[in-house]
Simulated assay, not measured.
Amino acid sequence: MIRTLSEDKEKAFFEQHSKIVHGALKKLNVNWKHADYDDFVQQGLLKLVEAYETFPEDLEQEEFLYQFTGFAYTKVRWHILDLLRKQKRKWDREMPWPEELESNQPDTQLPFEQAYQEMDLLKEMLPLLTKNEQSYLLDAVVNQLSVTEIAEKQGVSRKTVYQWKKRVSEKLNHFLLILKN
């Protein structure tokens, strides 16, 4: 059974049940200081309405109201947990900008504008690559390490480093073609 939340019941519904969202956030250790707290609250409220619409029993009866609270809490909690997992996976795939990159400059000084453009271009390229490809690119271009040195540093075979090199080349060639157009 799908029911809709009418505008006249909306305010009373949220006053009564919005605590479910805040309780789920608290249980998942997401407090108001979290950068995405407001987004999680909004997502939780949307999931709360979805729980209202899909709850199979009649909410006018008080015995089912308590069942709804547990149903809605579980639905909201699982949704926020999924969002937190997606966010963590995204953060795990991203590699932080290395501090040594700022201080590690080649011996030959490029004109300021050219060096700035190259660093800016490198910053745009890195998010397109996986963690391993980013490490390869930084080691090869900035640190000027050989394939053997990169393989030893990363603890992988030379063949793996050559595969990274090939994938970086393919991805960045496509990136440079897009920039030219």
Rank of each mutant, 00 (worst) to 15 (best):
M1N: 02
M1P: 03
M1R: 01
R3Y: 00
R3M: 04
T4A: 02
E7A: 02
E7N: 07
D8S: 14
K9S: 10
K9C: 07
K9L: 11
K11L: 09
F13A: 00
Q16P: 01
H17E: 03
H17V: 01
S18L: 05
I20E: 03
V21Q: 13
V21D: 11
G23M: 02
G23K: 09
A24F: 08
K26Y: 09
K27M: 06
L28T: 02
W32I: 05
K33E: 12
D36R: 10
Y37S: 04
Y37H: 15
Y37Q: 06
D38P: 01
D39P: 00
D39I: 04
F40P: 09
V41T: 04
G44P: 06
G44T: 00
L45Y: 01
L46T: 01
K47M: 11
L48V: 03
A51K: 04
E53W: 02
P56S: 08
E57Y: 13
D58P: 00
D58R: 08
E62I: 08
E63C: 04
L65R: 12
Q67P: 00
G70V: 01
A72V: 01
Y73P: 04
K86V: 03
K86Q: 14
K86F: 09
Q87R: 15
W91V: 05
W91Y: 12
R93K: 15
M95V: 06
P96C: 03
E99M: 13
E100F: 15
E100D: 13
S103P: 01
D107N: 11
T108N: 02
E113G: 03
Q114H: 11
Q114N: 07
Q117S: 04
E118V: 10
M119P: 01
L121T: 14
L122P: 06
K123V: 06
K123H: 14
K123Y: 12
E124T: 12
M125C: 15
M125R: 11
M125I: 15
L126N: 07
L126G: 08
L128I: 01
L129S: 02
K131F: 05
K131T: 10
S135G: 09
L137D: 10
L137F: 13
D139K: 14
A140C: 08
V141E: 09
V147G: 00
T148W: 06
I150V: 10
E152C: 07
E152L: 14
K153P: 03
Q154R: 14
S157K: 09
S157A: 03
T160W: 04
T160Y: 10
W164R: 15
W164G: 07
V168T: 12
S169K: 09
F175C: 05
I178A: 10
I178M: 10
L179T: 08
N181F: 10
N181E: 15
